[in-house]
């Protein structure tokens, strides 16, 4: 039973929100290759959603273009979540490995990406009065992803529902903490660099005199 290829497993998990991830775990399936493709799609989606949306709905400030924010929004945020979730689950005795978390999180993002991409394409054909259709796709995609996401976390760590929610919340807190520490680190390093540079300038002036 359930002798699916890796590609069929992707479809199976997305179409079966409640047992798909359990099956995935049971069969020790899930491929890193597909997961990475999905994260790349997430990046493309975030780019398309903010730069290629229908002109009648949204116009981006096109005098400058900086790709770094989009990289952070997609790859950065995703990796941050995976790392923090893994860190948190070790405290909670979760069963998922870093690789498993990576795979199931990526799989669960498929409806969200699809909804947003369909919305972006539709926005070129619909007028403002018909925005409800676009919204429909985007909302359904997002809601589906939320369901998949919770189910994925529950399956990969073998948690109860309440514990899963607690884990997700704590992961979010951990993410905020990590970002805070990163900013702090960056600022401190900046200070150090300025300090070193000041000493260098001071010395170079004195040597010249």
């Amino acid at each position: 039973m359930l002798d699916l290829t890796q590609g069929q497993f992707v479809k199976h998990t997305v179409m079966h929100p409640f047992e798909g991830f359990e099956d995935l775990r049971w069969k020790k399936a899930g491929s890193m290759k597909y997961a990475i493709i999905i994260v790349c799609l997430l990046f493309i989606e975030s780019l398309a959603y903010s730069r290629m949306y229908g002109f009648q709905y949204y116009t981006s400030y096109d005098k400058i273009f900086n790709i770094v924010p989009y990289i952070f929004q997609s790859f950065g945020l995703f990796l941050l979540y995976v790392v923090c979730n893994w860190a948190m689950c070790t405290l909670f005795d979760g069963e998922g490995s870093m690789k498993n978390i990576f795979i199931v999180t990526a799989y669960s993002l498929i409806p969200y990406i699809a909804g947003k991409l369909i919305g972006t394409v539709l926005s070129h054909f619909l007028i403002r009065d018909e925005y409800i259709f676009i919204q429909c796709f985007e909302v359904i995609g997002t809601a589906w992803t939320v369901v998949l996401f919770i189910s994925a976390m529950k399956a990969v760590h073998q948690f109860s529902f309440g514990k899963t929610l607690a884990l997700i919340l704590l992961t979010l807190v951990a993410m905020v903490l990590v970002v805070f520490l990163l900013v702090l680190l960056l600022t401190l390093f900046q200070q150090v660099i300025i300090f070193v540079f000041t000493i260098y300038t001071e010395l170079s002036y004195r040597l010249r005199v």
Partner: peptide, 18 residues
Amino acid sequence: FKISISRARYNKAYEGYR
């Protein structure tokens, strides 16, 4: 309307065009 970046008017023109 695209040159002048005025979305609401573009929307109206697009509706007619479609």
